[in-house]
């Protein structure tokens, strides 16, 4: 069966290999203020005051950009990797899992919107960038596992 927008199944492992160091780096940036010196860039303000990746007002460090890029790419690889036997039933499970993840993600975001205030909400939004993919990956694999273990002959 032709599968739409999916990567070969080996990308699941490539994703996992990228995820581990990226996640460690991300946690170190978040909780230990870790930064690679070689990723520091001095400020270079533009005369018109605009700011972008090449022109910014303050010194920046790209360690957090690197970590987040690694985490997102890794999660996308894992989420979009084909199963070994990607067929129409697996596609259905995949779509249902995505629907479930999307719903759970927004229910939790709504709850957090009312329960978390102030700067804490920035953390909520940061984690929320990744939770759709994480919820999808967990849900899809749980459903696959349940289906595999229900096979009896």
């Amino acid at each position: 069966m032709k599968s739409y927008l999916l990567l070969p199944s080996r990308y699941k492992w490539i994703g996992a290999i990228i995820l581990v160091p990226s996640l460690v780096l991300g946690l170190m940036v978040q909780f230990r203020d870790f930064a690679f010196d070689f990723l520091s860039l001095p400020s270079s303000p533009r005369k018109d005051g605009l700011s972008n990746i090449f022109n910014f007002d303050e010194d920046i460090n790209l360690t957090d950009e690197l970590a987040l890029t690694g985490i997102i790419v890794a999660l996308l690889f894992i989420a979009f990797a084909k199963e070994k036997h990607e067929d129409e039933f697996i596609s259905k499970l995949r779509l249902e899992s995505l629907q479930w993840a999307l719903l759970v993600n927004y229910v939790l975001l709504l709850a957090a919107t009312w329960l978390v205030h102030g700067f804490g909400y920035i953390d909520v939004m940061m984690y929320n960038m990744l939770t759709i993919l994480i919820f999808f990956i967990i849900r899809f694999n749980v459903v696959l596992f349940k289906n595999r273990s229900s096979i009896n002959e």
Partner: peptide
Amino acid sequence: TQQDLANKIGVSRQTINAMESNKYVP
């Protein structure tokens, strides 16, 4: 077997199992 049938029609064994237990309409 479920696996034989799966191989012959090019789907996963899970799909055969899901159809037989009326969990999936092909």
